[in-house]
Design a protein around this nucleic acid. Structure first.
Lengths: 204, 204
DNA sequence: CAGTAAAATGACTGCTCAGTCATTTTGTTG
DNA sequence: CAACAAAATGACTGAGCAGTCATTTTACTG
């Protein structure tokens, strides 16, 4: 009997789905798509293999779901932080900060994210276009800010699309360094480093 | 009977090895480590599967050899270009240019390279440490140049290690954009874009 | 608490593929 | 060109694993 539009079934579904997604994230992060087995994921979620197939149609689908979940979460955080009508300068800093902090908090997700999104959307299987779109969405938020800054004469005339991606790449690089243990600095210091470099690079 | 220190056997070995490496590069690039089969590689090289095992002990070894070949080649080109005792400014530009051009010429290699080196050295199997070292070697060449620039007061006081990696990341980003067809600009223009951004970011 | 339905299980199947090795082909040498 | 050796071949084996489904467990209901 439906309550609040959700049947009992839906609730269970939601719970199991979230549980499996978290397990999947861990396992895919540790072993990569191919080396991870559905058994592994099931075990990590504390269920039997067959159960996985009650909620997802294939291993591939689990993977996509895990990826989508993280990308969406990250994008939402970025949107939330940049929505405030602050100065372009502050928005850019916020973008850098939120992204670095997201991966600091979700270390295991970074492998999944960057092994797809970072290196060309092609390896395991051609990713559905929507993932590419979601990634570019981030860059577009940044791009809009850059354009705003240019209009306000705070930022010089740069190719905004390329610049936006460049900032994303710098952030990506710092995240990799941090997660590999190459960077010993505290988060704030790394955020400032990136922002500083970028701002000198693009300010008018 | 050895001639010039090379036996006949060595010559064949060298030839086959090169042939297999080229095939491996193509196949691994297209399918990724796990999805690529030894059959695929053999077929691409125009030999039978068993032959691959006459020259390499395992699929993993073929992969490492292909990766090492490319990294070495790239590093050599970088070394050659930066060796000239030019101004730091020119050396940095040269670094950017040579790397972008290398991947422009070796498009298939970029997938192999970045799926390892770019995303944290961990997926298929823990890479031997020497690969990590070879990668960092590039950054160190750049770092030396940055330090030189700082001494000459042409570059401001930045964390040289982080800055060197940041430049590498920017270059990486442009390469990805180019190979995915996101960047429509000509190579020169992209090189200038990166250099410009970097130079404003770090110059004194 | 019996009867029923939903959910979970894990043994099983079929397929893919890395790596092996007995056989065949190619090349060398006197 | 015979006798031998080096190189190449590809059919075969064993392991691993995605996905299925008959059976069992759990939860709900009257």
């Amino acid at each position: 009997m439906p309550v609040l539009g959700k049947t009992r079934k839906d609730v269970i579904r939601e719970f199991r789905t979230a549980e499996l997604l978290e397990a999947a994230r861990k396992v895919f992060a540790k072993r990569g798509f191919h080396a991870a087995t559905v058994e592994d994921i099931a075990a990590a979620a504390g269920v039997a293999k067959g159960t996985v197939y009650l909620y997802y149609r294939s291993k591939q689908e689990v993977y996509w779901a895990a990826l989508e979940h993280g990308i969406t979460e990250l994008l939402d955080e970025i949107r939330a932080t940049m929505a405030a009508d602050a100065a372009p300068e502050d928005k850019i800093r916020a973008f850098i900060a939120v992204k670095i902090r997201y991966f600091e908090r979700n270390r295991d997700f970074f492998r999944i994210y960057f092994s797809e999104v970072g290196s060309g959307f092609k390896h395991p299987v051609q990713l559905p276009r929507r993932f590419e779109a979601m990634y570019l969405q981030q860059a577009r938020l940044l791009e809009a800010t850059l354009q705003q800054g240019i209009r306000r004469k705070q930022i010089r005339e740069v190719r905004t699309d390329t610049a936006a991606l460049a900032i994303s790449d710098l952030v990506r690089g710092i995240i990799v360094q941090r997660l590999l243990g190459w960077s010993k600095k505290d988060v704030e210091s790394d955020i400032s480093f990136v922002f500083d470099l970028v701002w000198r690079g693009i300010s008018a």
